[in-house]
């Protein structure tokens, strides 16, 4: 039963994370290859603040603002140029941020990590047990889904999709494509931060090793497998992949396999990503429209 609850909590957290990437990648066509960075900023901000006795509600808000702010900062230099540059800038940012977590020992305790992160308390209600936490993540997943859906279906969402299709046309029609792309990244980063906050208070222990490229690849794969540029795709992808990954963890496998199992699983993820790009780039769910 606990395994079942744990599974769903992880699926919901990764759904939020994937939905935020989907807005940037699926709808706006931005190559964000370091999305874990914003998840990490959310996680560390909220963890550090609550560990210093700051109420969860406030830490929560600050964490989201911090994620969005860093998204904004990174956008300015890298979004003015072609997609590749944003890709490499985000990739680099992800790596650098991990270095910061590792090196600023006075703040983050470095590689030792932060233990004992408190469970969230909202309106003096403590989300401590698994069912309670599941309720919290599910609720926030629904909120995220609805907010993103409003954005996607609005004129703003339409303009973002237009930028994905052909930025030049949008500029010729008088749209400031640069501003719209920044908006997309900031919104995406805020929700990635939200996922990070939920994750950090769930595991109650974080260390720099939790925010590696592997996590970016996982969320990228979730979006691509589920179907980028669709409303339900990220949820679908999160369900399939998290189910696979987390169940693997609960199989009683000999510990000496661990050294081989982790890289093997990552290789499968990388290979799957390549396979999907070549044979089914649209993923499980196709973007709707009267195409063919």
């Amino acid at each position: 039963m606990d395994l079942f609850l744990h599974l769903w909590i992880m699926i919901f957290i990764y759904s939020i994370f994937a939905m935020s990437l989907n807005l940037e990648m699926g709808y706006t066509g931005l190559f964000n290859f370091g999305h874990i960075a914003f998840f990490g900023i959310g996680a560390y901000t909220s963890a550090l603040l609550t560990l210093h006795q700051i109420p969860f509600a406030l830490a929560f808000v600050v964490a989201l603002v911090a994620s969005g702010f860093f998204g904004f900062l990174l956008s300015i230099p890298s979004l003015r140029l072609r997609g590749d540059y944003f890709g490499i800038a985000t990739l680099g940012f992800g790596e650098i941020l991990r270095m910061v977590f590792q090196n600023e020992v006075w703040l983050t305790k470095g590689p030792m990590g932060l233990p004992g992160i408190p469970k969230p308390i909202l309106f003096s209600y403590r989300f401590a047990t698994l069912p309670q936490y599941l309720l919290l993540t599910m609720g926030l997943t629904i909120v995220t889904f609805l907010i993103l859906r409003i954005i996607i279906r609005s004129p703003l969402g339409r303009t973002l999709r237009g930028i994905r299709e052909d930025e030049i046309v949008l500029m010729a029609l008088g749209k400031n494509a640069f501003h719209f792309k920044i908006k997309s990244v900031v919104i995406g980063s805020v929700f990635a931060g939200l996922a990070g906050v939920l994750w950090t208070h769930y595991t109650t222990f974080i260390s720099p090793g939790d925010f590696t490229l592997s996590e970016t690849i996982l969320v990228l794969l979730i979006v691509v497998l589920g179907g980028k540029g669709t409303e339900w795709g990220p949820l679908m992808g999160a369900f399939v992949l998290i189910f696979f990954q987390e169940s693997l963890r609960f199989l009683k496998l000999p510990t000496e396999w661990g050294r081989y199992l982790a890289p093997l699983q990552q290789m499968i993820f990388g290979g799957l990503l390549i396979f999907l790009m070549i044979y089914r780039p649209e993923g499980l769910i196709r973007e709707k429209g009267e195409g063919r």
Partner: peptide, 13 residues
């Protein structure tokens, strides 16, 4: 044109 958007969306945008 914006290929993966409908004709109507191409106009509205």
């Amino acid at each position: 044109v914006l290929p993966k958007m409908t004709v109507l969306d191409n106009m509205l945008i």
